[in-house]
């Protein structure tokens, strides 16, 4: 069935919603700033990169700005990584965290904390988390590969096994440290958080996510072909083993990048791709852009809720993605064609 809303219109509406949600979210907090003031501060700052003149400008530009950018790209990255992983394993209930990548990130971060302690610089933990995710991804890939092919079921089984193993290692390291501070930090990686976002990391994450999204969108037809299985793909001239290897690597890098800066935020990678399919159908040329925008929107909303729900205490965002996401999903399921979700 063609989408009820024409695709360009839907994409435009989603992009507009993200563009509107960002200044709104930046404006909300202990020091409220009206959205038009947010836009003015950002425009000033972009035209003349002078240090912030007012407390509001400082809050908007230095504290909440990078955080909002990180929310946008984390959401987009997780949603697209989820869509890609689902196509890879031919199962719409797969999730990027299923492949052991986030467990690897947590283990990497905790290892770095154990080694460097409080002396760790601002880039050490994300760096270690990314290295952990990449190592876990490489291990899963190599263990799941048999005779040059990456079979979906093996990929999931090996991913779950490696993830459990790393989860155990993380728990062990945390117990050994036994300091409340370390446990707090681990909670950050396990549930995810955008607190403490700063420009360098947010921009690095944005650049990496944008590049990977472009690469994956260019391969949308390959994802479609892979949904038919290795033989169906071969009939269309797509070499499944090679395509799966490339797409797995891209999804792993995407997940690793996002988890390294924001922790293992759940729900988005699993549900947003399905939400996108309900709205635009199964073709990945539409699913990927729609999922990216929906993921961004959902994470900006979840972050807003994380900051404001129990003010002044901040909640880990991972607790709220489901709270924010379920209404989206229910609305889409109710409004969608009958026959989906049977």
């Amino acid at each position: 069935m063609t989408p009820r809303i024409p695709f360009p219109l839907l994409l435009g509406a989603l992009a507009a919603a993200v563009a509107a949600a960002v200044p709104l979210s930046i404006g909300v907090g202990a020091v409220p700033v009206p959205p038009q003031e947010v836009v003015r501060i950002v425009a000033d700052r972009l035209s003349s990169p002078a240090p912030a003149a007012s407390p509001e400008a400082y809050i908007v530009w230095e504290l909440r700005g990078p955080r909002a950018v990180q929310a946008v790209f984390t959401g987009a990255g997780l949603a697209v990584a989820g869509a890609v992983v689902q196509a890879l394993v031919r199962n719409p209930v797969a999730d990027p965290h299923l492949l052991g990548l986030s467990s690897g990130a947590s283990t990497g971060a905790v290892l770095a904390m154990a080694a460097a302690g409080a002396a760790a610089g601002p880039l050490v933990l994300p760096g270690a988390a990314f290295a952990g995710a990449a190592a876990a991804g490489a291990a899963v890939f190599l263990l799941a590969r048999t005779r040059g092919t990456l079979e979906p079921l093996r990929l999931v089984l090996v991913g779950v096994a490696v993830g459990q193993l790393l989860g155990g290692a993380t728990s062990f390291l945390v117990l050994r440290q036994a300091s409340g501070d370390a446990q707090q930090q681990v909670l950050f990686w396990l549930l995810g958080s955008l607190a403490g976002a700063r420009w360098p990391l947010a921009l690095g994450c944005a650049a990496a996510v944008t590049a990977l999204l472009a690469l994956l969108t260019a391969r949308a037809r390959t994802l479609d072909a892979l949904a038919l299985g290795a033989e169906g793909a071969a009939a269309l001239g797509v070499r499944a083993d090679r395509a799966r290897a490339v797409l797995f690597a891209a999804a792993a890098l995407l997940t690793g990048t996002v988890v390294a800066v924001a922790g293992a935020i759940g729900f988005v990678g699993l549900v947003v791709p399905n939400l996108a399919r309900l709205l635009v159908g199964a073709g990945h040329r539409r699913v990927l852009p729609a999922a990216a925008l929906l993921g961004a929107l959902m994470l900006v909303a979840a972050d807003l809720a994380a900051r404001t729900a129990l003010r002044p205490t901040e909640l880990p965002i991972g607790i709220l993605t489901a709270v924010v996401g379920v209404p989206f999903l229910v609305a889409a399921l109710r409004g969608a064609r009958a026959g989906v979700g049977r």
């Binding site: 069935m1 063609t2 689902q86 196509a87 031919r90 199962n91 719409p92 037809r221 390959t222 479609d224 072909a225 949904a227 038919l228 299985g229 169906g232 269309l236 001239g237 797509v238 399919r277 159908g281 199964a282 073709g283 989906v340």
Partner: peptide, 17 residues
């Protein structure tokens, strides 16, 4: 596969090569 293409989308995959 678990993905619900429309008939037209499924046929359009024939153009992948």
């Amino acid at each position: 596969g678990g993905f619900d293409f429309t008939a037209e989308e499924a046929v359009a995959l024939g153009r992948v090569p």
